[in-house]
């Protein structure tokens, strides 16, 4: 097993482990958010192993930085405690959910052996670099790239409308 592959397994395991700790940590939401940071950073490391440096940097900046900071802000602003949540209802639905999740996990685990790589995949020249990403954005994906601006505008207008203080 090459060094690259063992690094991949290390970061992949870290990503999965911290993702699990994020979901299973029910007591402290901030700790959950921090676990999410570890997941994001491990994913960024996996991107680095794929030589997609631009994507890796964006991953850390956008997800590890901006989005998790937003999560933490919201968590702290709301400052919810366990007692603030209504007592557990719909026990039947919960039991059904657990059964379905266990079923799905068993199914997915069965898929796992075939999915585990034992060699490093070959990547095309320049894959994931700023040049390739930029070219793709402005040629093949020009329409979604430009159309996104309208989507962001609508979100902006919507936020102003709903959050402005004066009720006229």
């Amino acid at each position: 097993m090459s060094a690259e592959l063992s690094l991949f397994y290390f970061f992949a395991a870290l990503a999965v482990g911290s993702a699990l700790s994020m979901v299973l940590n029910l007591r402290n939401t901030v700790a959950s958010a921090m676990s999410l940071v570890i997941t994001m950073v491990s994913l960024a490391a996996v991107y680095v192993l794929m030589e997609a440096h631009l994507v890796a940097v964006l991953q850390i900046m956008v997800y590890g930085g901006a989005i998790v900071v937003l999560f933490v802000f919201v968590v702290m602003l709301l400052n919810l405690r366990q007692d603030d949540f209504p007592p557990g209802r719909q026990r039947g639905a919960k039991a059904l959910g657990v059964v379905l999740v266990v079923f799905a996990v068993i199914k997915l685990l069965a898929l796992l052996p075939a999915a585990l790589p034992d060699t490093v995949a070959a990547l095309p020249e320049g894959f994931g670099g700023y040049r390739d990403v930029g070219t793709a954005l402005f040629t093949r994906f020009i329409l979604p790239f430009e159309a996104t601006s309208l989507l962001l505008l609508s979100a902006l207008v919507g936020a102003v409308v709903l959050a402005k203080r004066r009720l006229d």
Binding site: P144, S154, A155, G158, L162
Partner: peptide, 15 residues
């Protein structure tokens, strides 16, 4: 594009 269109339709309607 299906997803982009869906979001572009949904977000204004939420508002």
């Amino acid at each position: 594009l299906v997803f982009l269109g869906l979001e572009m339709m949904s977000i204004p309607i939420y508002v």
